[in-house]
Design a protein around this nucleic acid. Sequence first.
RNA 1: GUGGGCGUAGCUCAGUUGGUUAGAGCGCUAGGUUGUGGUCCUAGAGGUCGCGGGUUCGAUCCCCGUCGCUCACCCCA
Length: 427
Amino acid sequence: MSEPVTTFQAPFGTHDVLGPQSAQWEGLVAIFADFAYRYGFSLALTPLFEEVGVFHRGIGENSEVAKKEMYVFTDRGDRVYALRPEGTAPIVRAYIQHQPTTPWKAWYVTPAFRYERPQAGRYRQHHQLGVEVLGTDDPAVDVEVIALAWRFYAALGMTRVRLLLNSMGHDECRGAYVSVLRDFLEANVDQLCDEHRLVWGENTLRVLDCKKEPCIAVTSRGPMLPDHLCDDCREHFERVVAGLATLGIEAVLDPRLVRGFDYYTRTTFEFVSDALEGSQKSIGGGGRYDKLAEQLGGKPTSGVGFGSGIERLLLAREAEDLDSALINRTLDLFVVDTTGLDDATVLVDRLRSAGFATSRSYDGRSMKSQMKVADRSGARLALLIGPMEHGAGQVTIRDLRSENFEQAQQTVALGDVVAAVSNLLTN
RNA sequence: GUGGGCGUAGCUCAGUUGGUUAGAGCGCUAGGUUGUGGUCCUAGAGGUCGCGGGUUCGAUCCCCGUCGCUCACCCCA
């Protein structure tokens, strides 16, 4: 008697991406890689896990993510690591470690791990692509980073994307604002929503982000951060706003925009898709983080970047009924061989070397069954080798996508196959 | 962390007010057409009805538990 064999499935909150959906991922990443290249970024690959301090000191001890959403583990050497919950802190860690010449412009595509309850558009492992620029606080860079994202979304065909823009100021002007806001909230505490009436003091800025009526009513007549920026921060923000306007990029100034990580200074922004609902709406975001390098033990270094969720982007495209393929992964050729000899092996090798996407059947099945597989493969042409072709040194080429399949085939000499199929495929 | 919903074939789902061998469509395999796919016809394979316990003469169905999935809130991508 044997135990029943247990089966496995992907861990809770994770998902497998298989064909044909995986082709959309391939296309999305390829398009983004091309954008990053055109904007002067180079790919940065950093480990999936880092010492936990990289994230604690980076994204802030008080953020939801750092407090209770990280996958933390201890390795056999008693080192405490965390699976990356986001992409920016590791890039800054790598910057500090390697001191590349500035401005350093890096792009990435990576999984991100957060221990949350999964739901539509939210996973314990999701995937992000993004860029970071280290070593300059020129507002032109803020504009460039936002422009890259904006143009990228447009290239994906998305039309219902809005850009929300705000400035958090630097430490001092934000600190001054927070105490003004704190005084204001304290004076109106009994009018806040049930939750924030109790916790408004813990993370004061979060109250601005509250979606409930009572809080909105209170904060909408309270002080707003952009009105409390110092001269330098205000000028920086104005130049970002002006730069975007010059490029024709429509930004919605949103003084309530408060992002989830503590490292942001000055420019913060978020992209929302109005094709999506609720918490899934946010398809990307980012901002400036001029203090982060110091917090991670490096020299003071300005930085700005953005990240976007791949799953959310594909959801948003779907919600906008954008069904176009982001990359062509259609097979050109399918070789059918009923001789059971090596003809197919030799032929597919030659066709692939000649640049054609080529598949074939295996297991020596019947002509009928091999043709069925050829059809399902999506290939445009089938190349048939039977005893007749084998003996005559020929190949029969059949057009699988032709309407009048009676006349859709021809037989050519083995030596003419490459020329013949390339002729047929370009028509 | 909080609160809903759902687990029957590979997929999408019927079903039994508790009763013998549990169904359909699609998909898959083979045949009709012994060298030809996409239409059509026929046949076949495939299920511990999530798992465990309880009630019962009898449970896929009722009850309890458990696991899994899913959706929403919170927060985020």
